[in-house]
Simulated scan of single mutants.
Amino acid sequence: MNLSVRIKTYALCTLCLCILNIAQAQKKAASLKFKVIAFYTGKEDQAHISFVHEANKWFPAMAKKYNFTYDSTNNWKNLNTAFLAKYKVVIFLDTRPEDSLQRVAFEKYMKGGGGWMGFHFSAFALNQSAVPQNWDWYHNTFLGSGEYGSNTWRPTSAILKVEGKNHPAMKGLGSTFKASPNEWYRWQNDITKNPDIQILASIDPVSFPLGTGPKQSEIWHSGYYPVVWANKNYKMVYFNIGHNDIDYEHKTNKDLSRTFGNPAEDKLILSTLLWLGNTK
């Protein structure tokens, strides 16, 4: 084969390889089901920081396995209409936006059909605290829970009763499952009386007494406590999980528990995310 033919053959092979690579890249891009953006603050409470670190390892692993993309940011200025337009699902890992323009952009995103899941402290609001209830649409209309009421302490596991068995988020969970240790919240509003709210899981009474104290008010002996719920008017699910147990007493701040790695909770979170990302 002379030099000219070899050059032409090499050029042709190179061109074919480039075309193949482009086709594979396009196929991969086309197969991506949806994009997820998680917002977090990652400050103040080591239990919340621990959860955020866990989440930002677990979600990327799930993204590779289930073929979606996961991005995360602690820059809440990105919570604007142009930025959100790139994503199918928004996650609040530990806090909520405080800026009024960011709040307007998020409300517009949700009313436009965007998907959302929030964890634990993202629903917290308490007047006369650093996080006052000053966002009625979010706390009363969207979440329905209103202000924070009280909590259990220390973080302990609980048996959760599955209520919304027909909701896609609860697929395959059975009637009950054991949750990882958590600080459980009670809320000001009774969401059982809110027709827009669908409760998906609650504390099963077999969990009582729940909490270890030392304050007696931090140990629940009875009552009804929703833990996971959805708002029928939006594509959203809120989880009251996301507070790991931390060694505060010995000032090591070491993790004493994890949220992810619990098969039932992992299934719940993943089913919710895939539902949010794959529905119109």
Score class of each variant (00 low, 15 high):
Lys8Glu: 15
Cys18Glu: 12
Asn21Glu: 13
Ile22Phe: 11
Ile22Lys: 07
Lys27Pro: 02
Lys27Arg: 11
Lys27Glu: 15
Ser31Val: 07
Ser31Asn: 15
Leu32Ser: 09
Gly42Ile: 01
Trp58Pro: 00
Phe59Thr: 00
Lys65Ala: 13
Tyr66Arg: 01
Ser72Thr: 09
Leu84Asn: 02
Ala85Gly: 08
Tyr87Lys: 03
Val89Asp: 04
Phe92Asn: 09
Glu98Gly: 13
Ser100Leu: 11
Leu101Thr: 14
Lys111Cys: 04
Gly112Ser: 12
Trp116Ile: 14
Met117His: 05
Ser122Asp: 13
Ser122Ala: 15
Asn134Thr: 10
Asp136Met: 08
Leu143Arg: 00
Glu147Phe: 03
Glu147Lys: 09
Ala158Lys: 07
Leu160Asp: 11
Val162Tyr: 07
Val162Leu: 03
Glu163Ile: 15
Gly164Met: 07
Gly164Ala: 08
Lys165Cys: 01
Lys171Met: 06
Trp187Asp: 09
Thr192Trp: 09
Pro195Asp: 00
Ala201Asn: 07
Ala201Arg: 08
Ile203Gly: 03
Pro205Tyr: 00
Ser207Gly: 06
Ile219Cys: 06
Trp220Asn: 01
Gly223Arg: 05
Tyr225His: 10
Pro226Ser: 00
Asn244Leu: 06
Asp245Gln: 08
Glu249Gln: 13
Glu249Ile: 10
Asn262Ser: 06
Ala264Asp: 15
Gly277Lys: 03
Lys280Thr: 14
